[in-house]
Design a protein around this nucleic acid. Sequence first.
DNA 1: GTGGTCTAGACCACC
DNA 2: GTGGTCTAGACCACC
Lengths: 124, 124, 124, 124
Amino acid sequence: MLRLNLDPASPVPAYQQIIQALKIEIISGRLKGGDRLPPIRELAKILKLNPNTVAKAYYTLEEDGFVESRPGSGNWVKSRAPDLDSLRVSMLEGETKSYLEKAFSLGASLDDVRRSIERIASHE
Amino acid sequence: MLRLNLDPASPVPAYQQIIQALKIEIISGRLKGGDRLPPIRELAKILKLNPNTVAKAYYTLEEDGFVESRPGSGNWVKSRAPDLDSLRVSMLEGETKSYLEKAFSLGASLDDVRRSIERIASHE
Amino acid sequence: MLRLNLDPASPVPAYQQIIQALKIEIISGRLKGGDRLPPIRELAKILKLNPNTVAKAYYTLEEDGFVESRPGSGNWVKSRAPDLDSLRVSMLEGETKSYLEKAFSLGASLDDVRRSIERIASHE
Amino acid sequence: MLRLNLDPASPVPAYQQIIQALKIEIISGRLKGGDRLPPIRELAKILKLNPNTVAKAYYTLEEDGFVESRPGSGNWVKSRAPDLDSLRVSMLEGETKSYLEKAFSLGASLDDVRRSIERIASHE
DNA sequence: GTGGTCTAGACCACC
DNA sequence: GTGGTCTAGACCACC
């Protein structure tokens, strides 16, 4: 079952949050080629958004090659999606980079970062 | 000299990016109690923003207790700023938490995370 | 054998593409008065459309006087079809008009158009 | 002054008609790099469309590299637009190809086409 | 039911 | 004023 937690307080627009979350689902392999996305109206109801907002997210995912829209039949995860392995690596790298930048600019040392990672990871 | 790199493409409003960046400068100690912030018009010119936008950021920083506005004399970093040490720790913690969440949702293991951290950190 | 190439990506609805294509077959004389159109279900299967969609096209062709439906026996090209010669001329004229409009609005001269016609025609 | 004639009866969506028409204006050179497009709300008023519809057209033109959106300031024709000369040639070629296809499928000969071109062109 | 397009109009950030 | 995002909801083509 798809879990998409949007943050309505975030300045990141809802449709971009949906795009980001679904890309992660696909890249992580939890959504596979041939899987069907929830119908626009259904997902809109769940997320308490307007159907247009969800449609915009699906449309962008289609343009980015992750999803295929079949009018009258729904939206489907593409089988020949962009190279997922390299995407996964480069996305982790990007997240790590921006995390380290923020941590260092807060005045943390690499050792502070290591300790913070272990402490949080052991609590989860 | 203050370095504030705004991302105009980001959905985060410019004034919030200024607030965030200045808080980090203060929390990290690069800006100290008694330091003067750049005049609104000057910073607006540098960042190519409307003075209103910078003024909004300074005003919010004042409300949050980081900055003191002395009409006619400029904006100054407060000496009795909120407890910086605990702020620093809790902000690092928050960043680590959200970083780990994203990494794990991408399918990375804790070991993947550790390796990614060391690799990026050694390149900087 | 009837060749009907529909473009599913086109914004022109499938049933209108069928109508347009069959009118051209009739006007050009490739389909003659007394010829039988393919059964609705068969054509729907070939075109991967719902039978309703094909039925809607046939029904409209009947309204326009090109086709006669004989319940229980199929759909037939009418012998006393509208005056085909003048239709052919006026349809060519219409196509030429809209082609020239587009070409000129692209900045092409009449000479550019003549050259383009000869070049493409010699390649076919 | 920009002239955009939309056909509300066409099955081609209004926003695609706007895209098509503005691309032709740019490719033909009537709109040049640095020119400003009419504000979304203004064009919407002129065309009797909803601002969203015009915004969708502008947004797609931006994605295609023809236009640059500067929030708060308007939409501008890009200076380094995609290679216009080759675009012009290939668009004329495409129009000619589809025109000839339709003409031939109507049963016209190349001579019929030549005569039709000259007749219509001399009337304009 | 399902996606595509569109209207009417709101609020926001920034000019 | 200007573009960006979003809501609430309509109608269409096709299933």
